[in-house]
Design a protein around this nucleic acid. Sequence first.
DNA 1: TCGATCACG
DNA 2: ACGTACGTGATCGAG
Length: 871
Amino acid sequence: MRDKIVLIDGHSILNRAFYGVPDLTNSEGLHTNAVYGFLNIMFKILDEEKPEYLTVTFDVHAPTFRHKMYADYKGTRKPMAEELRQQVPVIKEVLKAMDIEIIEKEGLEADDLLGTISHLCEEKGMDVSIISGDRDTLQLATEHVKIRIPKTKQGRTEVEDYNASDVEEHYGVTPKEFIDVKALMGDASDNIPGVPGVGEKTATKIIQQYKTIENAYEHADELKPPRASKNLKEYWEQAKMSKVLATIDIHADIDFDLEKARHGNPYTSAAHEMFQKLQFKNMLSRFDVDTVSNDVEDSFREVTDKQEIDAVFAEAEQAECVGAAFSRDPGNVLPLFAHPSGYGRISLAWGKDKIVSIPCDMDMDFGKLTERLSCLAGKVKCFSMCGLKEFLAYLPEADSGSSFDVIVAAYLLNPLKSDYNYEDVAREQLGLLIDEKLDDTAKSCYEAYTAYAAAPLLEKKLQETGMDRLFREVEMPLVFTLYNMEQAGVQVEAEELKAYGDQLGTRIVELEKEIYDLAGEEFNINSPKQLGVILFEKLGMPHAKKTKTGYSTAADVLDKLAPDYPIVAKILEYRQLTKLKSTYADGLAVFIGADGRIHGKFNQTVTATGRLSSTEPNLQNIPVRMELGRLIRKVFVPKEGCVFVDADYSQIELRILAHCSGDEQLIQAYRDARDIHRMTASQVFHTPFDEVTDLQRRNAKAVNFGIVYGISSFGLSQDLSITRKEAAQYIEHYFETYPGIKKFLDDSVAHAKENGYAVTLFGRRRPVPELKSSNFMQRSFGERVAMNAPIQGTAADIIKIAMIGVDEELRKRNMKSRLILQVHDELLIEADENEVEEVKEILKDKMEHAADLSVPLIADMHTGKNWYEAK
DNA sequence: TCGATCACG
DNA sequence: ACGTACGTGATCGAG
């Protein structure tokens, strides 16, 4: 067997990876996509080839150009993108941490390094694989030197392989001849001039016949076409120079010590640490857990003996902090005594060597076991879990004062991660890798240990970032309030919902027929692709916008066409109805439980701004704007003997803006309870207050919205269908009118630029890594986020505080009424008929006094026998 | 699995 | 010159 060496063209692969992998950043705002893509490619190659030797080459000053002394290029290449530049030292560090040899030499191109090393190794009788994104390297291919060109396609890496014979097959010339082809055709990106008028086709033909440019020159008169003949003679000096430029040096003067390139175990603990910093989660699984010192697992203990279980609980009770976890695995005991939920085991951790797991069995069924756990949760100073809300059903004695959810804490510290699980927390906080192949018992021990061990670390970080009060006083109590809401659920009339869906179905069938008639054929109206073809090709409508994949058929495009084409109006109606039927009528029905209620989830650790999100189903986007859709709210009803009391904040985000900016005019306007949009219109359009037209007021309202979103003239112009210039004028006038707001928004951006995050009134942070981007668009996005996050986030903080207040007050007074839904600025209560007035008082009080602002907070209240009426 | 679309604040 | 409003989730078609 021949030994094998893999040579990686560092900059070339990094460059490929940068453009092939979507932008990634770690939580510190460091761009990591190129490094990630590079490693992906490298791992794939290493897995495949398992080489004895491995080396990565870099140019010293990238990007450089071949053979500077000849080149008369004018620095035409764009400088390296900043996001890529900052990743060059990172990949080098990672490679060093993995004990992978890096070769770079002043004044030498990576190509020359590759060429020389591959030549040396081939002479020693080795097989060589050169990994490069650059086709120039094809000239190095031989029987034993293989050029491998990786392509990143939609996350998957495919590799094109070229030995000498493959080059010939593909390009019709040998690798050596490839140089001559290039000398003739030139290469703009490498600043090789070539011969004018000779392109790839002609160059290949000439070299196929004459083998070298020198030989071709001798037969210059025979060359076809005549233009090539003439130009080769005329530009012969340039052709010769091009050949030199195109030739990769395989005899460069470098020291290459093969032994240093020997490929050992790259999965070192130093590398592990770096991967963690970079947050390359799925790559961490490559590390053998044993190589990372970890003695946690040694202390896992399964306890089944009744007396021992007593001892465990007695000991845990005395502990400062207890971590707990549920598992669906009952172990070697039949799941006979498990809970219907599937939980059959709990694990506890109260010290580094105090980690136990207890399965259910006939002496200790799930009920008894959780009773003990609940009792423990009520006694200890800190009861910690990963995702506490999911388990509160079994922990009636747990309370928010002494509970800790490490997932919620980790979310506050980095809300940009959309999905959190205990493995993430274990890795990030404890540097602990949990082997996927472990059984459920061991995993559950890890989960309990993570809850136990990460809690104090997270607590400290929350203090350091000024979010400890937000966590203790808002997020942890909210875990309980959200649990209560989910438990309560909302009653939905299944028959009515079905009837509504059927009604839609009838109309949809009619519309379908009419649309097919007008189109002259049947097609899938729900396919934007097929619809685009029908509208813009078959029916020849003018297409305004395009998407990446074809014509845009979005509603705002179709709206413009509707007056001229009857089919478009029908399509819009069809879209609306199918949306209502599939997502709402049919979609909601499957979530109605045996109790006739929908128990949706309210997720606390999803959004970047601190808002809640709602899933399974989403109860925060039930139609309301259009009457037909709004009707669906009639099937949301209070249970027997109850009515709905609904309250929504009036313009909470603008009020927050008024408070945070301290703008005198806006504050005074809210104190005087004036019509803010009308007032804005009056000021911005220089019109007396009473003479403001409806249009002016509408426009002013859009400007107010725009301000909250992080205004841009383009966005506003789109929304109002006006020119950018007009929009810019509106904004200018707005800022002249409210200078305090301008200053506040500028300060928000400046703060986020300086600190890397935006912050709410209650200290909640939202990282804004985009502000560091060199890409204008990304950076602008970051600026808008920096303006919006404090406002949207503060609103989220405030309604969370109100929710906790309402929920706790209802319980404290032993009332039957329950908080059941939250829709960002709206709360819905299922109120007992005898408690309606009291509920209204509580709701209004808790909402309006959730925060003490310099402007009043107003909650508008409604009651009704269904959600349609109560809104 | 991803993009387009559209429902909400 | 660039090319967008901020924040979500569900459904569908297409690869």
